[in-house]
Amino acid sequence: PRLPAEWDGLEFHLKIQGRLLHVGLEQDSISLTVRDGAPLEVDVRGELLTVDGGPVRVPLAPVTAPEPTIFPSGLPTSSIPVVRAAV
């Protein structure tokens, strides 16, 4: 999901495979850093990345807002940054 236009960013942690992953989301990018544990391979929109103690920054392409409708259908899934641990 994208941040509201008036937000500068959002940060949170995820526990994945025993590692603590810090996620920083900004309007134009997502940053990933392993804060506790071994390096972690993650898949971000089909790109396999190794994340460790230094931040890995992935640019996010701009997304156009969908036309307003009285029938909510949500944003296109192509705009959602998918992050998952590689198996």
Results as ranks from 00 to 15, higher is better:
residue 3 L to I: 10
residue 3 L to E: 06
residue 5 A to G: 09
residue 5 A to L: 13
residue 6 E to Q: 11
residue 6 E to P: 03
residue 7 W to G: 04
residue 7 W to R: 14
residue 8 D to C: 05
residue 9 G to T: 11
residue 9 G to K: 08
residue 10 L to S: 14
residue 12 F to D: 14
residue 13 H to P: 00
residue 14 L to V: 08
residue 15 K to A: 15
residue 16 I to W: 10
residue 19 R to T: 15
residue 19 R to I: 07
residue 19 R to K: 15
residue 20 L to Y: 01
residue 23 V to Y: 06
residue 23 V to T: 15
residue 25 L to M: 14
residue 25 L to S: 10
residue 26 E to L: 10
residue 26 E to Q: 14
residue 26 E to F: 08
residue 27 Q to I: 05
residue 29 S to E: 07
residue 31 S to I: 02
residue 31 S to F: 03
residue 32 L to D: 12
residue 33 T to L: 07
residue 34 V to W: 06
residue 35 R to I: 09
residue 35 R to F: 00
residue 35 R to V: 13
residue 37 G to L: 06
residue 37 G to Q: 11
residue 40 L to Q: 08
residue 42 V to G: 09
residue 42 V to M: 05
residue 44 V to I: 08
residue 44 V to S: 04
residue 48 L to F: 02
residue 48 L to S: 08
residue 48 L to A: 06
residue 48 L to Q: 12
residue 48 L to R: 15
residue 49 L to A: 05
residue 50 T to S: 10
residue 50 T to Y: 01
residue 51 V to I: 06
residue 51 V to A: 08
residue 51 V to K: 03
residue 53 G to W: 03
residue 54 G to E: 15
residue 57 R to V: 15
residue 58 V to Y: 03
residue 58 V to P: 10
residue 58 V to T: 15
residue 59 P to C: 06
residue 60 L to Q: 06
residue 60 L to R: 12
residue 61 A to R: 13
residue 61 A to W: 00
residue 64 T to Q: 12
residue 64 T to A: 14
residue 65 A to I: 04
residue 66 P to W: 00
residue 66 P to N: 02
residue 66 P to I: 02
residue 68 P to N: 03
residue 69 T to L: 01
residue 69 T to D: 01
residue 70 I to A: 01
residue 70 I to C: 00
residue 71 F to R: 00
residue 71 F to V: 01
residue 74 G to Q: 04
residue 75 L to D: 14
residue 77 T to Q: 08
residue 77 T to E: 13
residue 78 S to C: 03
residue 78 S to I: 12
residue 78 S to G: 09
residue 79 S to T: 06
residue 80 I to V: 10
residue 81 P to N: 02
residue 81 P to T: 07
residue 83 V to C: 05
residue 87 V to A: 14
residue 87 V to N: 05
residue 87 V to L: 11
residue 87 V to I: 04
